[in-house]
Amino acid sequence: MTTPLLEITNLHANIEGKEILKGVNLTVMPGEVHSIMGPNGSGKSTLASVIAGHEAYEVTDGSIRFNGIDLLELEADQRACAGVFLAFQYPVEIPGVSTKFFLKAAVNAIRKYRGEEELDAMDFLDMVEEKAESVSLSIDLLDRNVNEGFSGGEKKRAEVFQMAMLDPLLGVLDETDSGLDIDALKIVAEGVNKLRSKKRGFIVITHYQRLLDFIVPDFVHVLKDGVIVKSGDKSLALELEEKGYAGIESCGSACSCS
């Protein structure tokens, strides 16, 4: 039997004493793409942050296993090295740190952890050029400080570019489509699709069914008030688009149609 890539069981998490995740269950097998949708404030980014290892969130119950290991035992940087990547909903600007040097540090930290040789400057630059091209990211951006002064779309593209550089097993994309124009959306989706493989899995958080036309998910889940209230295939996203979340809820609890 294949080991699940990610296995979240009864996950409860707090921030500043307030419970946000109230028993999330989710299993992602290698090669699968899962989409998570849900109203604003339902806990989607919280789930992504907890997976990535954000220390401000306190896990009060449940477990997360990643590729056979207890993910909650690892710190954020160890999780990244183990193969977790989070594309942030709001990528952080870091003044004074050039994107190129930051990425070199990241790539080599991960390679070191995996027992691979660190890249020298030449190999690193070759890799940068190749991966930047895959998401049509202008190389010039990489001489700037991390995310500083990037447009909304450039930030999102840069996140996908980083993901390509770091070669994770699990990519969590938190609203990577928001702020992208339609052409950029296609480019980014193509970049993600190129990374799809038998071994790699994705969690794609989005509000819009449109993205899922390009990155076709195997499963769609609806997260509401800290729990997954409904799961289905791609057609669930279409249904949501039509009826909204309220429609889904009435269907779940007091459904009169047989």
Binding site: A52, R79, A80, L86, G96, A105, V107, A109
Partner: peptide, 17 residues
């Protein structure tokens, strides 16, 4: 956190900042 989610260890991230 951002630096660490990219694999950079805590001490190195701190030094970098």
């Amino acid at each position: 956190l951002y630096l660490r989610t990219r694999g950079i260890p805590k001490d190195a991230a701190r030094t970098l900042l």
